[in-house]
């Protein structure tokens, strides 16, 4: 009878193997062409090192422990920043979606702040927080806040009013109405917000780390640039791509698990 009951196992886990491999054909082909072009000398290694060199650099950094440490630091910053900004955005979205008073009070202010590019605050943030952890967390949280706030608000406001009337007729209390009608109805939109926010999360973190940091992937890339280690720079960029893909896949699995009722997620 609760929301938990209506959650089924993620369907993507049961997909046939071949389907899961198709999406990797294009990236692998690009790497293969790149390797051939590098080995044949079409692309000078000073412009772009061969994939095999990048892999070798990765292996070395992995052995030294530097790679894992930097990835972990970046991953930690991203997650904490996302959690803080996401929770605040979700809370404001709920409050302003459910209460007219709250919306009147805060929505205009939030819309004004939203139109300031959060990365423009970097100089100010450095002055406030230095190049400490809190500076990065603040920027990530700020960047993640708006997509989650806007989409939660939109999701709640667009729940079918006929369903809400139905819930009231059948004697649902406010809490039940929220749990059984409003929140599940807003969930598809909330997931759109989460996926936008994940993209912004990596973007913000990388910019912040390349400008002001003493650890993390962005710092690793900037250090490598100073020592002309172009293979490490390319390696960092590739890891960003993989982490972005990983975050997106995680949100998709969650989406499929919780939106099994949605016709768009049903495999027949």
């Amino acid at each position: 009878m609760s929301l938990i009951d209506s959650i089924s196992l993620p369907r993507s886990l049961r997909l046939p193997r071949v389907d899961g491999l198709i999406q990797w054909i294009v990236p692998l082909a690009i790497i293969a062409i790149w390797q051939v072009a590098s080995v044949a000398g079409f692309v000078p290694t000073r412009v772009l090192p061969a994939p095999s060199d990048v892999a070798l650099a990765g292996w070395k950094l992995l052995l030294s422990g530097e790679l894992v440490r930097n990835i972990w630091v970046s991953f930690w910053r991203a997650s904490i920043g996302f959690l803080i900004g996401g929770s605040i955005g979700f809370a404001f979205g709920l409050a302003n979606g459910l209460s007219q008073l709250s919306a009147k009070l805060t929505d205009t202010t939030l819309q004004m702040v939203r139109n300031v590019p959060h990365l423009a605050l970097i100089p100010l943030v450095i002055l406030w927080f230095g190049i400490d952890e809190s500076a990065k967390l603040f920027l990530v949280a700020l960047g993640v806040f708006f997509p989650i706030y806007l989409n939660t608000l939109h999701g709640i406001r667009t729940v079918d009013p006929q369903l809400i009337e139905m819930g009231r007729i059948y004697g649902m209390t406010d809490g039940e109405l929220f749990r059984r009608v409003i929140f599940p109805g807003a969930l598809p939109s909330i997931f759109v917000g989460i996926r936008f926010a994940l993209g912004i999360m990596w973007l913000t973190l990388i910019v912040a780390e390349t400008i002001a940091a003493s650890s993390g992937l962005g710092y690793m890339a900037m250090q490598a640039r100073e020592f002309m280690l172009i293979d490490v720079v390319v390696l960092s960029i590739l890891i960003y791509a993989l982490l972005g893909k990983l975050a997106d896949s995680a949100s998709r699995v969650l989406e499929r698990a919780t939106l099994a009722w949605h016709p768009a997620f049903q495999k027949r």
Binding site: M1, L163, E165, I169, G171, R180, V181, P184, L259, W261
Partner: peptide, 29 residues
Amino acid sequence: PEDIRVMFQEPRLLPWARVLANVEVGLGR
């Protein structure tokens, strides 16, 4: 309240609840 019930032109089922759970909604309190 459970003594008086309405049925509309639209079914107004909760799309995220299975058929049985939708019927249970009608039990009210």
